[in-house]
């Protein structure tokens, strides 16, 4: 059985029909956190494996909390997993990467979902956590169609987001004011984008939205708007922008020709119990990586021809 607790206010839809959690989910997080604390004590003491019965007896309780970008995949994979292991209770919740990392560090949940490396987050002791990379997400700048922009130089993109360029005509578009839509500070998507594009410079203060879905809707409807989104959120109302002539495609991410991408992590603390280990193994299996991951707009970890570490150093596989 899989219980997916979403806040109810799923307003905006992802391209693949996967709904994204919105505000309500964060409010629900409070309640969820409390119930976790209550449940947490009795967590996942993986079935006192009764006399000799082997993998059949896999049971226990797995809770995965965190990144909303990973949530749809984790929920779908979790549903498939529990269909095969009916004695395992698997709960997938959103709440944000920060919540995922701090909850797993506190030992309140079995898996902390995150868009960013634990090393990148202040207040997280990364050496206490074990990283399991389960997918890759490519992100690209998106602009409103009216702006007339299809390609930008990396330097121009940086100048736009630092507030040096304020009109689209300066980069070959329409005479239209640039409206920057950022993700919230501390968001994994924003961190990935800023690492790749701004490289340490601070972004200009601007509007902030707290989900991919909100960004998708607002950029689509606001003239002159620019933001950045995971590939799976592209729609025909948005113009995904190429950078230095490189188009944002899965293939370009796999070879690192497209620089803005990040792993989706599932972090565990200490030695995970049997059910959690089995689920993580399932996430890495061909079943998930070759079909589910691709179907849902992510990039398979198996297809990557490069690897990136927490410091952003890229090496060939």
């Amino acid at each position: 059985m899989l219980s997916l607790r979403s806040g109810g206010s799923t307003i905006l839809k992802k391209r693949h029909g996967v709904t994204e959690m919105n505000k309500g989910s964060k409010l629900a997080m409070g309640i969820a956190a409390i119930s976790l604390l209550l449940v947490g004590c009795g967590k996942a003491t993986s079935s006192s494996s009764s006399k000799g019965s082997s993998s059949e007896a896999l049971s226990g309780k797995v809770t995965a909390v965190g990144s909303t970008a990973l949530q749809p995949l984790a929920a779908k994979a979790g549903a498939n997993f529990t269909a095969k292991n009916s004695k395992v209770t698997l709960t997938v919740q959103g709440g944000g990467s920060g919540t995922g990392l701090s909850q797993v560090q506190a030992g309140a949940v079995s898996i902390g979902d995150s868009d960013i490396f634990a090393e990148e987050k202040d207040g997280i002791k990364a050496d206490k956590l074990t990283d399991h990379k389960v997918a890759v997400v490519g992100m690209a700048p998106v602009v409103n169609k009216d702006a007339g922009i299809k390609n930008l130089k990396m330097a121009q993109l940086k100048q736009i987001f630092t507030g040096k360029i304020t009109n689209w005509k300066e980069v070959g578009g329409k005479d239209q004011k640039i409206v920057i839509i950022n993700r919230a500070q501390g968001s994994g998507t924003r961190a990935t984008f800023e690492n790749a594009v701004l490289k340490g410079t601070d972004a200009v203060k601007s509007q902030e939205q707290d989900s991919n879905g909100a960004v998708q809707k607002i950029v689509g409807s606001t003239p002159g708007a620019v933001s950045y989104l995971a590939f799976s959120y592209f729609t025909n109302k948005l113009q995904a922008v190429s950078i230095d002539g490189v188009t944002p495609t899965d293939n370009n991410v796999e070879t690192n020709k497209w620089k803005i991408w990040s792993y989706e992590h599932m972090y565990t603390k200490g030695t995970p119990d049997k059910a959690t280990t089995a689920f993580l193994k399932y996430m890495d299996s061909k079943d998930v990586q070759d079909s589910l991951v691709k179907d849902m707009g992510y990039i398979s970890i198996h297809d990557m021809k490069v690897a990136k570490d927490a410091k952003g150093t890229v090496t060939q596989n």
Partner: peptide
């Protein structure tokens, strides 16, 4: 508050 709370870590300045 609602925008930022999910992305911060307990005990750090942003939180």
């Amino acid at each position: 508050l609602t925008t930022g709370i999910g992305d911060t870590i307990d005990g750090t300045l942003p939180n």
